[in-house]
Simulated scan of single mutants.
Amino acid sequence: MVFMRILFTSNPLVGHVFPLLPLMYAARNAGHEVMVATGAELIPELRTRGFSTWTVGPSFADAATELQQSTTDPDAAPGTELARDAVFLFARPSVRRAHELIPRAASWGPDMVISEVLEFAGREVALSFGALPVTHGFGTHVPESARLARIILDHLSSQLGTPSRQHAFDTGIYVDPCPPSLQAGGLSSMETWLIRPGTGELPAGHELPQSILELPDRPVVYLTLGTVFNDPDLVRTVLDAIEDLPISIVVTTGPGADPALLGPRPSHVAVVEFVPQALVLPCASAVVSHTGSGTMLGALAAGVPQVCLPRGADQFANAERVRSAGAGVRLLPDEVSPERLRAAVQAVLHDQRYAQAAKALQVEIGAMPTAAEVLGDLVTLAGANTLTA
């Protein structure tokens, strides 16, 4: 067997790094040398999982601060603000990562570089040194995905002084964890390789907190708003609307958010800062969430219907796809009220059409190739790429 050096690159966001974990574990388990390059926020988590890391580029908090400090033209044409966000949050950080990554990669010598879809420094490394470039998705394609990719790639080539990587991106490999029946159009020119998503990769030693284990034996509703758009006011609104139903509720407030912010809650509500969804989803009868890609696909991999409360980023596209598939109820920000929240939770718990649609997607996901299978094919292709380079 050929052993390779495989570099993974990502923006320092949980929702961007975690979808790469199945391939990272598969590569390490197969004996390949794995390196992960991202910003400082995710380095401790990756090292806890035993991966070697390079801390490169700005933190996401720094990139977001630079975006907030930039000026916005109120008369700008539609789409201009979205393009500005893409440059500040993803293009400029990719340039900084590229400057730091290229000298490290020159000495390390990766055979393959796997980059999440909004991280572009890794592609620059791969194309500069003859490694196989692989793009890895994390959910449904947002509207204008292709246009945003062009904006970011143009920024990189102009700032780095390198040739345009547009054609290589458009025709390259796209590893897609989204089941085809749920996926939207947007990056159709790429060579799609499906990979099976799961409920999440569980670090060693994690188990359910005692407060969750002691919940009454009722249908469990898992309430989470993720790690970026977590809004305690919305969480309180949801809890106030549904906590008197005959259910048990597991709530995660997000890293660094004090559960006490939600105030006192009855004994059938367990509030914790964080618990791996791989532990919670097998117990859940319904999920109420922001519909981030990891939560959405994890719930579907577990066959659990959802109440979708999108707040930003790709969440609106994800929520629309779940609604269209019949696997959940979507409430847009201006549709959220205690009455509608209560009705939505009751609907996904008691109307079996939602559970049936979620189970159908679970079956589709179960038929997708495993990470180990995808990795084996990528290694074969990378070996051939090395021979012809």
Results as ranks from 00 to 15, higher is better:
Val113Met: 06
Val2Lys: 13
Val251Trp: 01
Thr9Pro: 03
Pro74Arg: 02
Val272Phe: 06
Tyr354Trp: 03
Ala241Arg: 05
Asp377Arg: 15
Thr291Lys: 05
Gln69Lys: 15
Met368Glu: 10
Thr199Gly: 07
Val220Arg: 13
Pro19Leu: 02
Met1Trp: 02
Ala270Met: 08
Pro44Glu: 00
Ser293Trp: 02
Glu124Arg: 13
Asn318Gln: 10
Val36His: 03
Ala260Phe: 08
Arg353Gly: 12
Ala367Trp: 13
Thr291Pro: 03
Leu148Ile: 14
Pro219Met: 10
Ala149Val: 12
Asn29Arg: 12
Val374His: 02
Pro305Val: 06
Leu118Asn: 12
Asp176Leu: 10
Glu33Arg: 10
Gln166Trp: 15
Pro12Arg: 04
Gly139Met: 07
Ile365Asp: 11
Ala26Trp: 00
Ser128Ala: 14
Phe316Val: 00
Ala98Met: 02
Glu66Asp: 14
Gly39Asn: 06
Thr237Ser: 13
His141Asn: 15
Thr65Leu: 14
Ile249Phe: 05
Leu160Thr: 02
Ala61Trp: 10
Arg236Tyr: 08
Pro44Val: 00
Ala131Asp: 02
Phe129Val: 11
Arg265Pro: 05
Leu332Asn: 13
Leu213His: 10
Phe88Asn: 12
Phe229Gln: 11
Ala64Phe: 13
Arg49Ser: 02
Pro203Leu: 05
Ala357His: 10
Ser70Ile: 10
Trp108Cys: 04
Val322Gly: 04
Asp244Ile: 01
Arg47Val: 09
Leu153Ile: 11
Ser267Ile: 12
Ser94Ile: 02
Ser189Lys: 11
Pro310Trp: 00
Thr370Tyr: 04
Ala260Asn: 12
Ile152His: 05
Ala299Val: 07
Thr38Gly: 07
Val345Ser: 02
Phe88Gly: 09
Asp154Asn: 13
Thr291Ser: 15
His136Leu: 07
Ser293Pro: 07
Asn318Pro: 00
Val275Ala: 08
Thr252Pro: 03
Val235Asp: 12
Ala106His: 13
Gln277Val: 03
Val175Cys: 08
Glu207Ile: 12
Ala63Asn: 07
Pro179Ser: 11
Leu341Arg: 04
Asn230Asp: 15
Val269Asn: 09
Lys359Trp: 14
Ile152Asn: 06
Thr38Gln: 06
Val175Asn: 05
Ala30Met: 01
Phe138Gln: 14
His32Tyr: 03
Met368Gln: 13
Ala30Glu: 01
Leu160Phe: 03
